[in-house]
Design a protein around this nucleic acid. Structure first.
Lengths: 206, 206
DNA sequence: CCCCGTATCAAACGAACGTTTGAAGGATAG
DNA sequence: CTATCCTTCAAACGTTCGTTTGATACGGGG
């Protein structure tokens, strides 16, 4: 009798995502993970090799898609000569918020991402920068063009604040229940709009 | 021969602060802490009772002063009828940034605080809310008065973004080297001014 | 002087950790 | 049926964890 329709690998990834989000990478043990996933303890090392590799696999499963969608959205912005700062921010925010609001563990993943943001673990930072940093750098170039009046140094630390604030906020959004009577899409559009406006105001501030 | 001019208790608190900031609460072991503090392993449980109590003591040592200074600064704002939103934000930001920029472990503490912000650990959240939540609620009241046009719900989640963004940013600021030739106070004032403007723009955004 | 409370120490406790092992299934191909 | 490969399993590996213990040193007050 299998405990779920998903494969052992997928069940491990799902359970790990939820537990890493809740207790952190060091705080969640492989025994907790395999117990929640209803698989044998040895399955983690069999399928992933080590706990560190499992952590990377959890990131990879979501970030490949998230990064691709952010990249595609940004490409559309760059193709449009009339695109505004708000459009670029939308390209950054929308894919992440859709992920945070989906029902298949996306919220847990965003909380895990926010945790990784707060951690200054060298190995994890290098992994994320090496594999997913190029899209962030593409965004930086576009923001630099749209905010040409800002000194490079000033722009970079504003982007740092904005990226941190957005990641932190979106991580918590999966937990907040939306107001009764509003549809899922209305809630999402409302949130995106406000996040974009909030971020744009901060980036443009004189 | 003592390894430092400070007492065993103080050396433990200092080492714990630095290691918790770097590796997290679960990730930093008492053996790392006591080794860095040059004290015996048993000293932690002798002076603090448990690792959890040590964590709380590390918070208490800094937060008592930080909260008091924020409270005092806010009281001055409330006493001034002409005070602006920027003044209130200054009252929130300045004490924390001064802590983050001081040379006696303040930077490590702010990184630790940002970590606690990202963690959703129930015990830690309750401890912080019970002991230090009242000042944050005072700020919320003032912001509510200064931004009366915003719906309560809207205000609260904007404050949530701002508090998170500021905490994250200030946590990283202790790590950033200031531009050559600028004085410590000039650097601080520059940073505070920009953080205040950034936060005010986000809070006021139409 | 002895006593007593405080502090430090090396050593050990049981529990939990990540990882490895070797045997047992279970499906598929020859 | 046998052989092979992939997967799962219980059990154990050595290590490290937070915590506890009992001995030892120290330092005034009676």
């Amino acid at each position: 009798m299998s405990a779920s329709q998903f494969s052992t690998k997928q069940r491990i990834l799902g359970a790990a995502e939820a537990l890493f989000a809740q207790h952190g990478f060091a705080g969640a043990s492989l025994r907790q993970v395999t117990s929640a996933a209803n698989v044998n303890l040895a399955a983690v090392n069999y399928h992933f090799g080590s706990k560190d590799n499992l952590i990377e696999a959890v990131f990879r499963r979501r970030l490949d898609a998230l990064n691709a969608r952010r990249h595609a959205a940004l490409a559309k912005v760059e193709a449009n000569p009339a695109a505004t700062l708000e459009d670029a921010l939308d390209a950054f925010i929308r894919p992440a918020l859709e992920l945070a609001l989906d029902r298949h563990g996306g919220a847990a993943f965003m909380r895990m991402l926010a945790r990784a943001y707060a951690e200054h673990d060298e190995r994890l930072r290098r992994f994320l920068s090496d594999n997913y940093g190029h899209v962030l750098r593409e965004f930086a170039v576009v923001f630099h063009r749209m905010l040409a009046h800002l000194a490079k140094e000033e722009l970079y630390w504003r982007l740092d604040i904005v990226a941190g604030a957005l990641t932190y906020t979106m991580a918590d959004f999966g937990l907040i229940k939306r107001r009764a009577g509003t549809s899922e899409t209305a809630h999402r559009e409302y949130t995106i709009e406000h996040l974009v406006r909030f971020a744009a105001a901060g980036l443009r501030a004189a």
